[in-house]
Every structure is written in structure tokens, then in C-alpha cells.
Design a protein around this nucleic acid. Structure first.
Lengths: 211, 211
DNA sequence: TAGATTGTTAATCGATTAACAATC
DNA sequence: TAGATTGTTAATCGATTAACAATC
């Protein structure tokens, strides 16, 4: 991978390509042209070819793209060929949901532990893991070589916990708290702001009704 | 609201403005200039003014913007002054988490019911609501005037359920299933694809390590 | 009034789409 | 070979930023 910077617009589309290619592969489709894929995905064939060519030529003139090969390449670009160790901080409903929804394991995201500041939850078993107190956090991250922390705690706690995670040399934070984390650029942050998403939906309902 | 179409890029930023303005308001700040807000939010002042002026002039030269007024206006644009009735379909971990994480109520999204196809869950109580069988869906939507359905079911079920919802005249679907729903344009769909989000994070971890 | 800051037009930048020569 | 389809350059479109006159 060269260092020519890929735009986040392109990155944002890669998981969707990955998903469609996975489905094609599961259906036994061997090859597909950018044109056919564009019809399936409702985007332009131009965009598909431009996107892929950010990472090199995956296709063949007159043939198209080999589905399995391309699927695998995009998986690699997305970093899915490496294993990532992750922990969940916040054992409330959302934290438990994510722990249990570990379809992610299939993609190399290994659930290693769950933490909460509430003593009542300590020792409670979630997916064969006992909820740990926050005091264990630093040593656990180091010992278990944790890459990713999932933040499913209220925003009041999120900022200070995030700073603590940075000190523990975490690589990335998957942030479900409804607050912006201002962390060093070396820490990767991906936000899932559910209420923002719901408000967008609300806007679009409104707009549809008033036109 | 006029019909000059606002780009989704702008809409996507509104909830964040709304959040910051809410916090300023809670902190007793009365007014703010686009410049100060731009520093706080780490965007350009130009963008802020352009964004707001899509909806009309909310500020005053030489003064800036009144925080409370602007907060309220943006809330209105986002449709938060109306009440929305929502149901959750899929009473698994994620569905339960969303039902319980009903901070949303504060914004006018009223949780009215939860459904699941699994008979073992029927009657189970979630936030004082009993899980209902799918057979009740159509009549319930009509009687309770449900606007929004939250889909927290596996993708295998999501497409057929979504089609059923369309027949029931639902207005909008908040889709957590990892599949694209191809529905009529009159139905508003907002996707939350958690695994896409995690893959983006994975890409950025990778990129940070290889540069 | 003078200073501050908006609303808005113009300039720039980046992303998407179209076109086509290269080539399988 | 002829047809198909990529990789890539050029053209277009849209979004962001800069600039500044209007005005509080």
C-alpha cells in the first residue's frame, strides 16, 4: 500500500463493496463487470472503477473482475486479514448487545473483555466473560494486547475514559458515546452517534411530508 | 420550508450543530459568532454560515447568533418539535438495548411497542412493554399511528419485514440489519451498518500502522 | 459612529461522471 | 480476430472556503 492518501469517501464505500462481493461469492458467481456491479449496487460503473483503481488494478480488460479475488483484496485493504483484540467499556444494554452480536469475530475482531465502573455488575457473566472493574483496565490492555476499545458509556464518562485509554496505548476507539473525542491523531476514532442518525431520519420524514 | 433541495452533506451536520448549541445553552451561553463556534467545532466559519443560510438568516450582523433561538430553530428543522411513534422489530440484544436507551424520548421519539417472531420472547417485558408476535404488526401500526420502525433483526428477515412495513404505510425505517433495503422513495430509510463502521476503523488502524 | 459579524457572491478544491485508448 | 471491459485522462458537477459588501 502506497502513501497516496485515499479519501474517506472512498474508504466509506469499501465495506459495501466487500459485502456485495461476499454475497456474489456465496452465490457462486465467479466474475463480474463494473457495469453489472453498478446495476446491482445502484452506483455508476465509473465510480466503481475509480474506487478500485485507488488501490491498483484488480480487473482485466474484456473480462471484468474475479469476484473471489476482489473480495479478498478488499478484505485485505480493510485490514480484515489481521486479528484485532477488542474490549468493551460499559456493560449496559448497548455494551452487552455488542458483546453478544459478535458476528464481528468472523472478521477478526476478537472480544477479549468487558469493563464497567458499576460494582454491581462486576463478576456478571457476559458471553463467558466476567465484567471487570475499571481498575483492571491498564494492565489488561497491556497483557492482552488490546487494539480496540468500544465505548458504550454515557458521554459524561467518555472523555476521561478515552484519555485513560490513550495513556494505555490503545490504537483505536469505537465510540458510541454522544460526544466528540479530541484525541491525538495517532489514535483512530470511529463514531457511531445513534441519536444523530435518528435525527437525520426525522429530518427526512419531515421533508417528505412538506413537499 | 421551501423546496430548494438541501444536500445530505448539510443535513448530516445539523445534529452536531444541535448538540453543540444545546451544550452552550446548558452552560448559559447566550450568543456565539460563527467564528467562535467554528473553533469549538473544528470546522470553518464559512461552512457554518453557509449551512445555516440554507434555511434562512438566523443571525445578526455584528452580534452573531442567539444560542437558544438557533438551537430551537435547528431542532425544528430536524423535526424534533413533532412527536414520532416508533416500534422496534427484533427483541434481541440490540433491540432491547435501543428500547432501554430511550434518551430518544426526550427528543420526541416515543417507544410504543416491540415485536419478535420468536414465540419464546412473546410476553417478555421490555421497558414495561410486552414483546408481541409479528401477527399483531399491521393492526398495531394502524391503531397506534406508528411512524418509525426500528429493524434490529438478522438480514435474512429484514427484506421481507421491510416490505410488510411498507404495506402497513410506515413512514420511515431505522435499519440496523446489514442489508440494503430497496423500497419506494416515499419511505425514508436510515441505515446503521455497525460492521461497516467497524471495518472503516480497521482500515484506519491499518493505514496508521503502515505510514 | 466604529467595530464586529453576518449573508452572500466568487474562487477554489475535490469528488463524480463521461469518454476513450489500451488490452485482454 | 472482434468484442468486451478495464484503467485512466478529461470534463463536469457539487461542496467547501475565501472574500467582502451590507448592516447591526
Amino acid at each position: 500500500m502506497l502513501d497516496k492518501e485515499i479519501s474517506q469517501a472512498v474508504i466509506g464505500r469499501l465495506p459495501r463493496y466487500f459485502r456485495y462481493l461476499g454475497e456474489l461469492k456465496d452465490n457462486g458467481i465467479e466474475r463480474i463487470s463494473s457495469k453489472d456491479l453498478s446495476i446491482l449496487m445502484k452506483v455508476t460503473a465509473s465510480q466503481i472503477r475509480q474506487d478500485f483503481n485507488n488501490f491498483g488494478g484488480f480487473g482485466q480488460q474484456g473480462y471484468g473482475y474475479n469476484v473471489e479475488y476482489l473480495h479478498n483484496e478488499i478484505g485485505g485493504i480493510l485490514g480484515l486479514h489481521q486479528k484485532h483484540h477488542l474490549i468493551i467499556i460499559g456493560a449496559g444494554n448497548l455494551g452487552q448487545a455488542i458483546a453478544n452480536y459478535m458476528n464481528f469475530e468472523r472478521r477478526g475482531f476478537i472480544f477479549k473483555g468487558i469493563f464497567d465502573s458499576n460494582p454491581e455488575l462486576h463478576g456478571k457473566s457476559i458471553r463467558e466473560m466476567q465484567v471487570q472493574p475499571m481498575e483492571n483496565l491498564a494492565s489488561f490492555i497491556q497483557e492482552q494486547q488490546i487494539d480496540i476499545a468500544v465505548l458504550t458509556i454515557p458521554k459524561s464518562a467518555a472523555i476521561s475514559v478515552a484519555e485513560k485509554l490513550v495513556q494505555c496505548n490503545i490504537k483505536a476507539i469505537w465510540n458510541f458515546a454522544h460526544v466528540d473525542l479530541n484525541l491525538p491523531n495517532s489514535i483512530q476514532v470511529e463514531n457511531v452517534h445513534l441519536s444523530d442518525s435518528l435525527m437525520k431520519l426525522s429530518y427526512n420524514i419531515n421533508r417528505a411530508e412538506n413537499t
